[in-house]
Design a protein around this nucleic acid. Structure first.
Lengths: 337, 337
DNA sequence: GTGAAAGCGCTAACAG
DNA sequence: CTGTTAGCGCTTTCAC
């Protein structure tokens, strides 16, 4: 791989001049610049980004760090696309890290990203990570949070209104006449799930329906098998729910599997509403009613916040709240008599 | 962020010694090493990977470059997981690049990866890229191909036996009694699809069924909408197919949507077999018969080849061919009378 | 408009 | 076992 020195030699200038040409300094004679550029293409020269980064203390690495909990979750892969599209448009590459919600992995990747001196990190925070993230912020690397909020920390954030999502879903079911509505949700560690649950409970209360603890099931949101198990148990309850609200797409999948396995007809015998408008939602029979999160758009916004921060480190952190929307298909109907 | 110098000062040793401790050299007095380590944790010191990389010409960046065509495709996200799991186990981070099968994007990412001096690149080659990849290989960066083959080039490769996949799928349909079997496939640019098609044609021929050009439809494999359109057209043919073989999961989705929209019953009125055992395949009704690609395992293998090459650059390239398998569910049955 | 020289943080001879 | 020193490829004063 050729370097500055070679180019300089071949173009009969100093390496400084070549550097100036690379960085588009205007203090270079157009003719010289022309000559240098020609040599650069001739030698197929590409500046060494590693060296560039080492030299310039807060130079741009043109690298965006992205930590996501689960690449296999369509919700996240949509977000990745949104971020990636904006990044590519800005000549940035994305270092994607799959954290699995595993604190050790997350810590490892955070270290890597820091020491790769990426220009910023986009991630969905976990509660336990106040400290690590605090440290990153101290180093001056911009942090953008998405999907979940980082407690009271003062960082750029894009979330959807999860409480509203839960409320919309539950209200829809109530409107259809359901009173026994189960929810498949996750531990309170993830703010997004607890907020969906909050919305669920508010909808029930506002409609004079008592919150029934038996119908609230918490499990690993990354495991459809777990959701399947929970659903099977729900179905076999003495006084089973007539509708199920699954708070993410993997749980929805598990719920549907369980319902099919128990030979219950959707929506005649049981209604189901999912979270996330996944690709297969409208292909299944009956098509799935869902609360749609604008995942791709969320990725877009997060990336935009990232570049805003990169441009101007002193910009005030903002919190963007996006609206979920209800997409009514045929998996929800009135409860059986 | 603290650096070698600070640590050295605080521990009363030279920076060399600190460096040795970092790199686990055995020529350090255990006591000194202990002291240095203590200072390192005290100062929360992390070696600067950028500087490390710059210094050591072919030192390890502990970065693995991964280019994939479409992160939203479950087949690829499964592969990513396989690769990521092995990488993490080896303390490597993955730079994930989404190429969209866009030559410009791919070129851009290849440049970035090269100039980030990643330790190797894993990618599914596109035909047009003989040259670019040739260049990379010349620089000594190991390349691992997956999913598709890179012409006659001499690189490590992991593929599945796509011809066999196409053959298995089609044979299954023929066994059920189908004679009018349509295939949703993609342009010959992608070797994987053309091979599946080859298997399809071989199965037909071996069973004395003539290949009917009308039933072979080519389209963008990343667009389920396109597949939906193609399927609709197939259904509305004068002499429509009694079974459809969709050669990837997005096309399968589109086909199912079209069939549902036309109110055809699966499998009574039309059979469908998909490629890739996606998460929702067994949740839909009827559950989908598919040819399963061992995607996750393919990622695992690709990553293993990567590390093998990183350990020993002179190792002879190998080609691993994995076997697809037929998973029979209820979306395929005998053709209507 | 251009160049010489210093140095980013680190590793690797080489010397002791 | 430990330290001194050169230099990876680049950007950035500071001179001219």
């Amino acid at each position: 791989m050729s370097n500055l020195k070679e180019v300089a030699k071949k173009a009969n200038v100093s390496i400084t001049t070549v550097s100036r040409v690379i960085n588009g300094s205007d203090k270079v004679n157009p003719k010289t610049s022309e000559r240098v550029k020609k040599v650069m293409t001739m030698l197929d020269y590409q500046p060494n980004r590693v060296a560039q980064r080492l030299r310039t203390a807060n130079g741009r690495s043109k690298l965006l760090g992205l930590i996501i909990p689960d690449i296999k979750n369509q919700f996240y892969s949509n977000i990745v696309r949104g971020i990636e599209d904006v990044a590519y448009g800005n000549d940035y590459a994305v270092i994607l890290c799959n954290s699995d919600e595993n604190p050790n992995k997350e810590r490892f990747y955070l270290e890597v990203l820091k020491s790769e001196s990426v220009d910023g990190i986009i991630l969905p925070p976990i509660l336990q990570f106040g400290e690590e993230i605090e440290n990153i912020i101290k180093t001056g690397i911009p942090i953008i949070c998405f999907d979940r909020k980082l407690g009271n920390k003062n960082v750029d954030t894009v979330v959807i209104d999860n409480e509203m999502g839960g409320y919309i879903a539950t209200s829809h079911l109530i409107d259809k006449g359901h009173k026994q509505i189960a929810i498949l949700t996750s531990s309170i560690l993830f703010s997004s799930f607890s907020e969906r649950q909050k919305g669920y409970e508010r909808a029930l209360k506002e409609n004079g329906i008592e919150v029934d603890k038996r119908l609230i099931r918490e499990g690993d949101p990354r495991s459809s098998d777990n959701a399947k198990l929970m659903t099977t148990k729900l179905i076999n309850l003495d006084n089973p729910p007539t509708a199920i609200f699954a708070t993410n797409n993997l749980m929805t999948l598990g719920a549907i599997e369980a319902i099919n396995e128990q030979n219950l007809k959707i929506p005649e015998e049981i209604s189901i509403i999912g979270f996330d408008d996944v690709s297969w939602a409208k292909a299944i029979t009956p098509p799935l009613t869902v609360v749609k999160q604008p995942a791709y758009e969320m990725g877009l916004k997060a990336a935009e916040l990232f570049f805003r921060k990169v441009e101007d480190k002193s910009s005030e952190p903002v919190e963007i709240v996006m609206e979920p929307s209800l997409i009514i298909r045929q998996s929800t109907a009135s409860p059986p008599k």
